[in-house]
Write a protein that binds this DNA or RNA. Sequence first.
RNA 1: GGUCCUGUAGAGCAGUUUGGAGUGCUCGCCACCCUGUCAAGGUGGAGGUCGCGGGUUCAAGUCCCGUCAGGACCGCCA
Length: 586
Amino acid sequence: MIRTHEAGTLRKEHAGQKVTLAGWVARRRDHGGVVFIDLRDASGSAQVVFREEDHAHDLRAEYCVKVTGEVRQRPAGNENPDLPTGEIEVVASEVEVLSESAPLPFPIEGSSGVSEEARLKYRYLDIRRQRIADALRIRSQATYLANEVMRERGFVYVETPNLTRSTPEGARDFLVPVRLQPGNWYALPQSPQLFKQLLMVSGLERYYQLARCFRDEDLRADRQPEFTQIDIEMSFVDQDDVIELGEALIGRIWKETLGYELPTPLPRMTYAEAMARYGSDKPDLRFGVELTDLTDYFSGTSFRVFQAPYVGAVVMPGGASQTRRELDAWQEWAKSRGARGLAYVLVQEDGTLGGPVAKNLSETELAGLAEATGAKPGDAVFFAAGARAASRDLLGAARLEIGRRCDLIDESQWSFLWIVDAPMFEEDGEGGWTPVHHPFTSPKPEWADTFQDNPGEALAYAYDMVCNGMEIGGGSIRIHRAEMQQRVFDVLGISKEEAESKFGWLLEAFKYGPPPHGGIAYGWDRVCMLLAGGESIRDVIAFPKTASGFDPLSGAPTPISPEQRKEAGVDATPKGDRPEPAAQQS
RNA sequence: GGUCCUGUAGAGCAGUUUGGAGUGCUCGCCACCCUGUCAAGGUGGAGGUCGCGGGUUCAAGUCCCGUCAGGACCGCCA
């Protein structure tokens, strides 16, 4: 090794030892006759002292250097109790510049903000910064822990293909042209869903993988075109078994990275309850502010707007003192979400009700409103009326916005829960049904025989783990009987031929004694983002892409040359003697 | 596909409302001074296509139109 010690590990016990360090010049404090360098390596940093004969004057920020010198306790009064190495310093006797650094595009040390674009373009420098380096380390630690838990429980790590077949359901696929078979295309997997079910047919019984997944959809702070899941599947289990495993996995990770004891078993809430109380299938329980259903309350109202299939409300504490401008801003906010507006009533300090909606309500309606919604003097009550799902969505979003604006969210808190009993199907807007989860999700046992008769009410054997208002994992018990699978396809309007063409390879496998099985997948980037305290999954991805899918570092994606285009067979027509590739969704 | 915010020196910002010479702040950079700092300090200096294109105007960083890039959100993401 070039060095004998790591800078961040030096303590006063090392005093008197001759050491050689290697790292980067983090900070330079040049006093002319004496120069201090903070030498940073992966372990931390230590102060190196140079005397004038040492030529340290020419060292610059982020030069990569090797320093030999003697560790000594700092002179009395010069200790720095804020630093782990603050009791010692290294008196340099030799210094070698291993490589110089050009002036930096942004500061490595210090906490000043830097644009996302600059950070991604020079991501390798961004990772030198403490915050990102820490985030990547905590991700690594979490990954080790996950592997430990899975190993202890006898799971088999299996890698599934990244070059695979396009799947017709779900997200848009990334496609890869195939030179050997011009006109035919691989798809990158949206998840290893079908392969992991095949591995259950194979009898592995317990499978897991840190799987790369690819989805060609628009990006968000918590979405990248490629991302990682911890993908898990188990045979001969029911929902409680998978939930127990999920809690053991997340519990170990939170305990050993953050020292947080997961309060297991985690609370479970049905999808229906979550939607009714919080207007969300991933409620943030770090604060209260629940929705109230006022449909019955306003069932006889003469106010036309509230003559709707659903009327609900959410209370903004202290909201009555908002200015006209702030209340107007709520209208704009609601419109930006596709609503017509956000009706409101202000509860004045004397208990009277104000706001434009109040005069449309009857004496009786006004009299009981505060009690019905739980509003107190000084609060504002926001209403949504219309279709139930859309109205609850709006109120749920308003609830989160209230939480943010009123600073009701305790950021130091962890709120974990399971959302269970999601519906199997939802209306696709064209008179048909579409799966809420995916078409291989089993109904709950009580719906096993009858789901096809009431598709809108049938409950799925599915579960999502929610943390701080974010879905971090989700899974289900799968269908393993052909007869039941056929009934699901019938509800979805998928013909036998269509099912054969799209999923034939899975259905074929399921002819050979498939075991009952189920699983779960955790969004690993989101999990690590929560552990690292980040705002975006980009914080825990070494080389992420921008919101338009561009990588400012490598410049990807790029056009291809006409030669590449020809060779890849991008424009070729497939030969007819192959099975029809699954139709692409546009 | 849509809505909103942002774009001014290497970095972070102010200036845009009410048009008047690239006017300014913090950090960094370069040179010099400085023997106990740890966000060291001091003196001096360099550094600008105000994202890009067009328009209005005697005059545009500032107003208008378009466009590009980044970010947030809606749609979308089983």
